[in-house]
Amino acid sequence: MRTMRFCAIFLAIAAPALPARAAETLTVQVREAVLRASASMLAAPVNKVPYATPVAVEERAAGWARVTPPAGPAGWVHESALTRKKLQLAAGGETTAAGASTREVALAGKGFNEQIEKEMRKTNTAADFSWVDRMEKMQVSAARLSEFLREGGVLPPSGDGQ
């Protein structure tokens, strides 16, 4: 009885508060997040959002989120492209923002960035970065991937695809 009364009170307080809740903000954690027309890696791209950009989450569905970026149209992105952490642009090495916590400063200074790679490449001549750079260019378009799966008769069991 007491539990039921508690639940009723809780609902009375919580329910009206829900629609007023501000949209969650997440941060893009890949080099360039492609926002798509629907929740599928094969759906048409509608916008591109660079690393470390905050986006507002409007809606979620099975591992996907529909987000609004600071510029351009909203679209769907897989949640693995987003993080709750606030990211700093660390690529240049000189990125310690004013006002960042010590912990954030330490993480930014971890040394895994472009500047450190360049330094390492000067001494470690055995490593072959030319092929790594070639590999990076080997991105296959969503259209080609769709065609490849269709041609090979590779069909998802449920028929709804990714």
């Binding site: 993480l107 895994f112 470690n124 072959d128 970065f129 092929w131 790594v132």
Partner: peptide
Amino acid sequence: DITPEQEYYIGRSVAATLLGK
């Protein structure tokens, strides 16, 4: 705590090392 960007640079160097071998 390693960010995906840091993971990317680690991965590049690991791959480059393997491609050296």
